[in-house]
Nucleic acid binder design. Structure first.
Length: 1000
RNA sequence: GCCGGGAUGGCGGAAUUGGUAGACGCGUUGGACUUAAAAUCCAAUAGUAUUUAUACUGUGGGAGUUCGAUUCUCCCUCCCGGCACCA
């Protein structure tokens, strides 16, 4: 071999040229072979150029595609550019360079970079979403949606910066301020286009089951669609009639119509139609007694962004519509109406019936405003509160009956046993007695321990092993005492109580397992401290750990404060679960699920399904996107641009500087147009489409990219699609991936496609982090430039390294030293084969190499199928390490190694193939098959355990029978050491793995 | 707060899905070659004790199931990603 050293610079460009010249990777529309369509999410050609993350998914797919090609499939592996988008436009605003120019420049750069990595793309199918030849069909897609009623216009909010006079994308809003000028962002209503993705919710949900996608992605889409079943109910407004004398109703959606008897008020979103119209009409407006307050609340809400409004931590605000009442349709009771921003206009009807007893949000609101709380569902699970108090000498006596009374009002079952003095030796007997009582109680169990009742409570839980949902401990402590002092007091035995308590010996982990929620109240006291209760709590990590310092209260005042807090704590949650109906007239006693339908029927509501998913807003008040093909005519109204007039081209004579209007309006030539219907002068829609529209169908265009009479021909689309394997980031779960499914399903319904899912198999690649384990970013200075890596180590090295780093779907840090190992591996391949050639291909006489070759082929083949590329590479490394030792092998095995290496490192494989075989290209060879008979082991090493601990290893013939294996195992010196004079209870033999001898 | 993913030597990771934990690679240490360095090659490399043999500890922490747990169950801690009051 001429070149002794592996010089990637000499070979990589050479083979890239050969592949391109011979059109090796062009997909064949006419082949009879089975097709395989592999795809990665196409890149946005950003100014920064290729990132090391790009080659990761590209290499992974390239390996699969090259492998499938060698397996005999007709491959389609296309590439293109998601070329519309904000950065190019921002650059135009700053630098005055038209987006088309920057984009073209970036594509040129990306192309060069991607080509230098040697991927097997079919460049003849390259697409560019910003090219008129492409966006003509994006517009055509819009028209299909429009024709079928899936594209419509309505008002929606946009982020508006008053000082820049421009609409801002969500990512341009930082802290509710404009990223450019730092002034406050307002919400502004604009007429905007939507795609009715909500019409496909059921189909989108149903389709998920069939897909070979990562489960988290499927789940995420399911949650995103957010299906929930409930009822539509109508609430009448009291003493209010429309002009036509009809009564006024407000409709609400609820998932819990069963709770309607507990609906003690209504809440409307501030944007609700009823509120808006009420404030518009003068004589009705005057009905509202607190109109100024109401109007102020509404304007305040408008200033808030969605994010501020939906901050869960904030207290619930609202304002009553004084003077207007609603009627609860179940019991005809008058109830107040509130406006509050915790109700969103975008979900359901923008109005709710509030049931504070059974909805946590309503509950919190009701507490703030002192509204009535009526429980209408009783927990099927009984709630029992056991109050364990301290010695009789303590002054709490009066509080226990009070607390018992209050809790019973709330539906709790309360037990306050008459405690013996905890210093009393009878305690144990007493606990046993209590245990009997408790055994008969089922349901939720709450224990309150007070003072010396604390240790009793803990002991009780531990001894009885009952599951306690909540444990409250109210323990007195001295404000001046610290932990150490407490301990000292204890050790000196100064306090008898402490000593007694300590002797109980609690097991923190056991208690932790038995108790779901632990709350600890500590308060001032100068008597004694159940010391190890406190210490125990350090291990238990109580959920609510309250130190109280209430000043100079006397004891009973202090107790009152504690018990009020406790009561509040115990009843601070709404009961949201199932149960039996109460306070609901004739429905009382039914279980709530049965009542749900009956009540809905009785009050004339209808069961309905709601979805969280909203329609897809596709309008962008931007230049660098696909123009929406609509014309507005004074005569004919909204007119779709006829298909023959497509594409509606993006004009070049526009001003990019923000003016407050879509940039397209500044182009006269674009804006003013004749109406296609009546010929009168009209104006064009000046908004462009969300770039996600472009990427929702690009995978379809690859089937027939140069067709200029249709987006794709029937023959080709149904030949190539759907995509067999798709690789891309998981961040697109609820965006691109959902939109593409929607498009495919819609086009299937329109009759253009014979399939209704675009991507059969999906895999996500993880993120490549910087060496510091942080996301790569310019500001952190941890960005790795792939060009530099390619220049230094070669494309093959970066490809193999990125696959070797770890599992594809994991995120993992880059390691500059780690890549050296991969480079060494390729150098070894080069060297060992070069040497073998120089020595006239010496053959191996033993079978060892042969076996390893076949094992490796098997491992690599199976690993590619399951995308475990890191272990496939490791297997090849093992083989090559062995080869450098043996140095003699058969021609067929060397060829086999090169073939399995080819998908990973195609350039070096091609170069060595030329030298070893001399015929054809390696990427067009057949994938090698392993011979199972050559892999079979004759002997196997098995482990010998005694009681599950490894004591010896022996090598046995593979088919040795069990009895002989046991005999051998028991005969090992190190085994005898442990089994001598011991009774063997059990012997376990796991074939070809281990023996476990169980002794007494 | 909710949903999802994760935690294994100094580092990236492997482990046939309940069966010998640490494959492979990086790094480190020692040795060979060299005037020397780099490169390359060889050997060692989870920790502790020890003369090897071996023993003990060890897969974020705590419990449990099992002859046997990185793997299954429960509880907890921390990290990463997504979502935001969905009635």
């Amino acid at each position: 071999m001429a070149e002794k050293y592996y010089d990637h610079k000499k070979i990589e460009f050479k083979w890239q040229n050969v592949w391109e010249k011979e059109k090796v990777f062009e997909a064949d529309d006419n082949s009879a072979k089975k097709k395989f369509y592999g795809l990665t999410m196409f890149p946005y050609p950003s100014g920064q150029g290729l990132h090391v993350g790009h080659p990761e998914s590209y290499t992974a797919l390239d390996i699969i595609v090259r492998y499938m090609k060698m397996k005999g499939y007709n491959i389609m592996n296309p590439i293109g550019w998601d070329a519309f988008g904000l950065p190019a436009e921002n650059y135009a605003i700053q630098q005055g360079v038209p987006p088309r120019e920057t984009t073209q420049e970036n594509i040129k750069n990306f192309t060069k970079q991607i080509k230098s990595l040697g991927f097997s793309y079919d460049w003849s199918r390259e697409i560019n979403t910003s090219a008129p030849e492409y966006y003509k069909w994006t517009q055509w897609m819009f028209l299909q949606m429009y024709k079928h009623g899936l594209a419509y216009k309505k008002k929606a909010k946009v982020n508006w910066c008053e000082s820049c006079k421009t609409v801002l994308a969500n990512e341009q809003v930082i802290d509710n301020k404009c990223e450019r000028c730092d002034s406050e962002v307002l919400q502004k209503d604009l007429e905007q286009w939507f795609f009715k993705i909500t019409a496909y919710v059921e189909k989108l949900l149903a389709g998920l089951d069939q897909l070979d996608w990562p489960e988290p992605i499927k789940l995420s889409q399911k949650n995103w669609i957010g299906k929930s079943e409930g009822a539509m109910l109508r609430f009448k407004i009291k003493d209010l009639r429309l002009k036509n004398k009809k009564e006024v109703y407000i409709e609400v959606f609820t998932t819990r119509p069963d709770t309607i008897y507990g609906a003690t008020y209504m809440v409307l979103a501030p944007e609700h139609d009823f509120v808006v119209s009420l404030l518009k009409i003068k004589n009705q407006k005057s009905k509202i007694k607190n109109i100024a307050e109401v109007e102020k609340y509404i304007t305040d809400t408008k200033k808030k962004t969605e994010l501020q409004r939906t901050d869960l931590a904030k207290e619930k605000t609202g304002v009553e519509l004084k003077g207007v009442k609603a009627i609860n349709p179940a019991n005809q009771k008058e109830i107040p109406i509130y406006i509050a921003d915790y109700v969103m206009m975008t979900y359901g009807t923008g109005a709710i019936m509030a049931v504070p007893a059974h909805d946590q949000r309503d509950f919190e609101f009701a507490k703030n405003f002192g509204l009535e709380i009526i429980p209408v569902i009783k927990s099927e699970k009984q709630k029992t509160v056991l109050i364990l108090h301290g010695t009789e000498g303590h002054s709490k006596k009066n509080w226990y009956p009070w607390l018992k009374d209050e809790l019973e009002k709330q539906g709790f079952n309360v037990i306050v046993p008459n405690m013996p003095d905890s210093r009393n030796p009878q305690l144990r007997l007493w606990l046993k007695h209590l245990q009997k009582i408790i055994k008969e109680i089922s349901g939720e169990f709450i224990i309150i321990g007070h003072s010396l009742g604390c240790p009793t409570a803990l002991q009780f839980i531990q001894n009885n092993k009952i599951n306690v949902s909540k444990l409250y401990l109210i323990a007195p402590t001295h404000s001046k005492m610290d932990w150490q002092q407490i301990e000292e007091t204890h050790e000196k035995g100064q306090c008898e109580c402490i000593k007694k308590v300590t002797n109980a010996g609690y097991d923190a982990s056991q208690i932790n397992q038995l108790v779901k929620e632990i709350h600890l109240y500590l308060s001032e006291d100068d008597t004694y401290i159940p010391f190890n209760v406190l210490k125990l709590f350090q291990d238990l990590k109580p959920i609510n750990h309250l130190y109280k310092n209430k000043g100079h209260f006397n004891k009973s005042t202090r107790d009152m404060v504690e018990f009020l807090d406790l009561l509040d704590e115990l009843t601070k949650q709404a009961y949201e679960a199932e149960g039996k109906m109460i306070n609901s007239d004739k429905f009382d006693g039914l279980d709530n699920k049965t009542a749900m339908k009956k009540i809905t029927k009785k009050i004339g509501g209808k069961m309905q399904t709601q979805y969280r998913l909203r329609d897809w807003l596709i309008s962008r008040q931007r230049y660098w996107g696909t123009p929406i093909p609509i014309i507005y005519c004074a005569q004919c109204g909204e007119v779709a641009v006829p298909e023959k007039d497509l594409p509606v081209k993006l004009p070049e004579d526009v001003d990019f500087k923000p003016t407050g209007e879509s940039p397209l309006k500044s182009s006269k030539e674009f804006h003013r147009v004749k109406c296609p219907k009546c010929g009168q002068s009209a104006r064009r829609e000046s908004d462009t489409m969300d770039t996600f529209v472009c990427s929702s169908w690009y995978y379809l265009r690859y089937a027939n990219p140069n067709n200029d009479s249709e987006p794709f021909s029937q023959k080709l689309i149904n030949k190539w699609l759907p995509v067999d394997t798709y690789i891309g980031g998981a961040e697109h779960a609820n965006g691109h991936l959902l939109f593409s499914r929607f498009f495919t399903k819609a086009l299937n319904d329109f009759g253009y496609l014979q399939f209704d899912e675009p991507f059969l198999k999906l895999r996500n690649q993880g993120m490549i982090l910087g060496e510091d384990n942080q996301k790569m970013s310019k500001s952190k200075g941890n960005v790795i430039n792939p060009d530099e890596v390619i220049a230094e180590y070669g494309a093959d090295t970066i490809r193999v390294y990125e696959m070797f780093m770890g599992p594809l779907e994991d995120s993992k840090p880059w390691s500059t030293s780690g890549i050296i190992g991969v480079r060494r591996f390729l150098e070894k391949v080069w060297l060992v084969i070069g040497e073998w050639l120089d020595n006239n291909k010496p053959e191996d006489s033993s079978n060892d190499m042969e076996k390893l070759f076949h094992q490796t082929i098997k491992k690599v083949t199976l690993d590619i199928e399951t995308m475990k590329f890191n272990t496939a590479i490791s297997a090849m490394m093992i083989l090559v390490n062995q080869m450098t030792k043996i140095k003699k092998f058969k021609q067929v095995n060397v060829e086999g190694l090169l073939k399995i290496l080819d998908p990973f490192a195609p350039h070096i494989s091609e170069e060595l193939w030329e030298k070893v075989s001399g015929t054809g290209l390696i990427c067009q060879q057949e994938w090698p098959v392993w011979d199972e008979t050559k892999i079979v082991e004759e002997e196997v090493e098995i482990a010998i355990q005694v009681n599950g601990r490894l004591r010896a290893k022996i090598i046995i013939p593979i088919d040795l029978d069990e009895e002989k294996v046991f005999a051998l195992a028991l005969d090992q010196n190190n085994v005898k050491k442990f089994t001598d004079n011991k009774e063997v209870i059990k012997k376990i033999y796991i074939s070809k793995r281990l023996v476990n001898i169980v002794i007494k």
